[in-house]
Design a protein around this nucleic acid. Sequence first.
DNA 1: ATGATGATTAACT
DNA 2: GTTAATCATCATG
Length: 166
Amino acid sequence: MVETEAYRPEDPACHAYKGPTMRNRNIFAGPGIAYVYVSYGIHRLLNVVCEEEGIGSAVLIRALRPVEGVELMQERRGRPKDLCNGPGRLTQALGVDIAHDGRDLTEGPLTLVPGEEPGEIVATTRIGISRGVDLPWRYLAPGERDVSVRPKTIEGRGLRRERSRA
DNA sequence: ATGATGATTAACT
DNA sequence: GTTAATCATCATG
């Protein structure tokens, strides 16, 4: 997992901000539960609920580094690259859809497990929202290739650009 | 490389 | 009727 965003109850960009509705009910469902919703009519976005039941707060999974099952991801995505570098892309690659909304992510076919020890993590403002724009609640691993949108500059050093072609 | 455009669902006003 | 936690595609420099 190389990029996430946090959404908190008092945060105007959070779907839970105005209280529970039919669409967002599972963001209140308690820690470890998935909140999945349709964005722009096309994409499904996967969140992990973090606070206790009744509190609407979650982490949006924005990008992953594919480790296993790359062939299947390519098949689902219909292209060889850009498999998990974006919140809509990764759900397509993983086969996540609305049926996963409200599911328990601590067990079953879609389970969160500990991965590598995290390296450097950088916080920036969040992407694609119109409110709560200044909150620095997007977290990414700046060295990772599979991040969706790379910040122009990184704290303390200039942009380090990786060569893409041979 | 960057910028514009439109797709398409569901919930909300 | 409007909006939306996005992305693929097409245009242009």
